[in-house]
Design a protein around this nucleic acid. Sequence first.
DNA 1: ACCTGAACACCGTTCAAGT
DNA 2: ACCTGAACACCGTTCAAGT
Lengths: 205, 205
Amino acid sequence: MPTVPKKPSSRKRDTYHVGNLAPQLLDAARRLLSEEGPGKLSLRAVSERVGVSPTAAYHHFASRGELLAHLAAQGFRELSQVLSEDRIGGGQLLQVCLAYFRFARGNPAIYQLMFGAEFVSGETLPTLAEARDEAFGRLERIIAEELALPRDASEVRAAALASWSYIHGLASLMIHGVIQVPDAVGDERLVELTLGGLERVFRGT
Amino acid sequence: MPTVPKKPSSRKRDTYHVGNLAPQLLDAARRLLSEEGPGKLSLRAVSERVGVSPTAAYHHFASRGELLAHLAAQGFRELSQVLSEDRIGGGQLLQVCLAYFRFARGNPAIYQLMFGAEFVSGETLPTLAEARDEAFGRLERIIAEELALPRDASEVRAAALASWSYIHGLASLMIHGVIQVPDAVGDERLVELTLGGLERVFRGT
DNA sequence: ACCTGAACACCGTTCAAGT
DNA sequence: ACCTGAACACCGTTCAAGT
């Protein structure tokens, strides 16, 4: 009898998928990202997880990069939330840096995506740029309060950019394993230590 | 007459390659990296550039990742040099930050590789860890002088880590296109502005 | 010892075809 | 309008075979 060629991979698709695909793809991608980390985040893997053909995504996103950009935008929106909730208690800068740092360490995979090399080439998706600017805006607002200056002062922008650089740098160095800090130190202590270090450098000059 | 199957791709290899392959691969990879950026840096592309089979590299490197790690180590060695040459003139911190920043902006592709997600999983190649520590050591030495403290003081380590975070963060945000600064501003002015911003934040508290 | 070629299991993306 | 399947041009990596 004639041999039926074996299905080459994955189990069969028993239904023709209907509607609502875009959010399902984003959800699956998000889960895949936190479970397996970036690098495993292929369009094909995401599609398989949803139970849809490898090419279905192209009816909702222009490319893999665009799907990833939407995911990154989602990340920036979450970061914005974190940066507004945590504006309680004295020592604003320490509090906001700590909240930022905890978000990054708690969501390393999406944080890498948000600030990674994925979108360096080509123009940025508007929704991503928007979410990004919103998050940076929160930081600026807090810095403006701290300095008791209007939010559009150039000193505020410079100080916010510098603060962002510091806390992003710290998060990035940790996430990428460039620096290693004993577990015993803890997030709060690390942020305190490094902020203290910066202060000392500037007092010394 | 029987049709000879066309060579599927690339021009033929007319010679059997002899010796000295490892450094040639690293050189080709380095050039490919600065010309095309990371992402185009495949083992196959590197091999083709050298004129060798796609699998030849495996006799010299355990994997693509290991070749990349050697490249990153090379980057850290160059960074170390930059950080020692430029220890002239007053205002040490500004000078060293500027030198660092210029290296990053001048070599964005290799900088991304050095601090990117490529080596997050698995253990780090010893030669890479070494080169990395050497570069951080230079920074620590300069900070120690600045603070007039012994190099192994915990305050020095904290301050060096914080400074590194700041300048790496700034470079990273720029290279990845997260922030945009008008060309007119220039590297020196940007570093001055942000350092000034940090100083103001700490004076205010 | 060092390099090649075929093969495997993956990718992103296109395009004509099915529902 | 939305989804599928086959196909194309890529990947990293293995392994037996050639020099």
